[in-house]
């Protein structure tokens, strides 16, 4: 066990409001870099970022790799499907091998909760949790908070509904912590079977009635609904879920005009969100995606860069 607190980014839990605000402030800089004709700076030249994904994901992996390349870091990637894990190698051995190849940061995704924390105990490299089971997905919460702050100026006093399969959602766990820390009020909207078994200590309210909640919201955050929840006996059918909890055009009309619609992706059009609603002017879903790259640049820079004193460095000037 490490006796000193790790510098790794494992969860929103344990972060302070000022930790989060520091990352969001820094992200503005990287957002600007992303809009340059050549969106690349030499800040992390010579450093290596490894994406270590024990669970399939295209979007998150691409987002991290894009962020690393814009910072001029080298990248390597490990995917469980086509790897030595299928030959029986343990996670610990895999991690030690990747570290031996010279990785400075391991960006880890795994279908089980807690694995990023375990890996952090096993390696000297820094670890970024890119989603661990049903536990947390901290960079998603940071990019969500950044997106809301950009559109609303601040999260303070916002009323945010998170709608859908909260029980199995690492996004929801991280978002609840980040949004409430930044002063927002969070209401979870889902049938009881899709809520965590206990909400003791969660700073949230609960509703089973999306129609009642929608007119009161500043943000409606929809989660992905997965088909396997039906075979698990958690809901009767996708049809009934969509009828009760899907954001369709009729419902979207009751959402205030200046409210925002968010989704971590990938969306199931026609299930949790009607196709036309995804392209509603209030939808910031694609904005979330592009902000994801900027947030991950900020996170990698804070972990690996020359420090927090941005004024004293030329690392953010354009490279060749």
């Amino acid at each position: 066990m490490n006796s000193t607190p790790s510098r790794s980014l494992l969860s929103i839990e344990g972060m302070t409001k000022s930790d989060i605000e520091e990352i969001l402030d820094l992200t503005d800089t990287f957002d600007e870099i992303g809009r340059r004709p050549i969106p690349k700076v030499p800040a992390l030249r010579g450093r290596t970022v490894a994406t270590v994904f024990f669970e399939n994901s295209t979007r998150t992996r691409l987002s991290f790799e894009t962020a690393a390349r814009r910072l001029s870091a080298d990248t390597m990637s490990f995917g469980a499907g086509s790897s030595s894990l299928s030959k029986g190698e343990s996670i610990r051995d895999t991690v030690e091998v990747i570290e031996a190849y010279g990785a400075d940061v391991l960006v880890v995704r795994h279908p089980a909760a807690g694995i990023a924390q375990r890996i952090d105990n096993w390696t000297d490299a820094l670890v970024v949790n890119a989603g661990d089971g049903c536990h947390e997905h901290p960079t998603q919460a940071l990019l969500d908070a950044y997106t809301l702050r950009k559109h609303k100026g601040s999260l303070n006093g916002l009323r945010i509904a998170i709608v859908g399969d909260i029980r199995h959602s690492r996004v929801a766990r991280s978002d609840v912590l980040a949004f409430t820390m930044l002063g927002a009020e969070v209401v979870l909207v889902a049938p009881p079977t899709l809520l965590p078994p206990s909400l003791e200590g969660w700073p949230v309210t609960i509703s089973y009635d999306l129609d009642e909640v929608l007119p009161t919201l500043d943000v409606c955050y929809l989660l992905r609904m997965q088909n396997e929840r039906i075979s698990e006996g958690l809901i009767p059918s996708v049809r009934e879920y969509t009828a009760d909890y899907g954001l369709n055009i009729k419902r979207a009309a009751t959402l205030p005009k200046d409210a925002l619609i968010c989704h971590p992706g990938p969306t199931n059009r026609g299930i949790e969100i009607e196709a036309a609603v995804a392209s509603d002017p209030r939808s910031v879903i694609l904005d979330q995606v592009s902000n994801g790259v900027s947030i991950r640049m900020a996170v990698l820079f804070l972990l690996l860069g020359s420090g927090r004193n941005l004024g004293a460095t030329s690392e953010l000037e354009g490279g060749q």
Binding site: A113, G114, D132, G133, E136, E200, G201
Partner: peptide
């Protein structure tokens, strides 16, 4: 409460 919080 703990399992809900830990996501296990």
């Amino acid at each position: 409460a703990w399992s809900s919080r830990l996501g296990i």
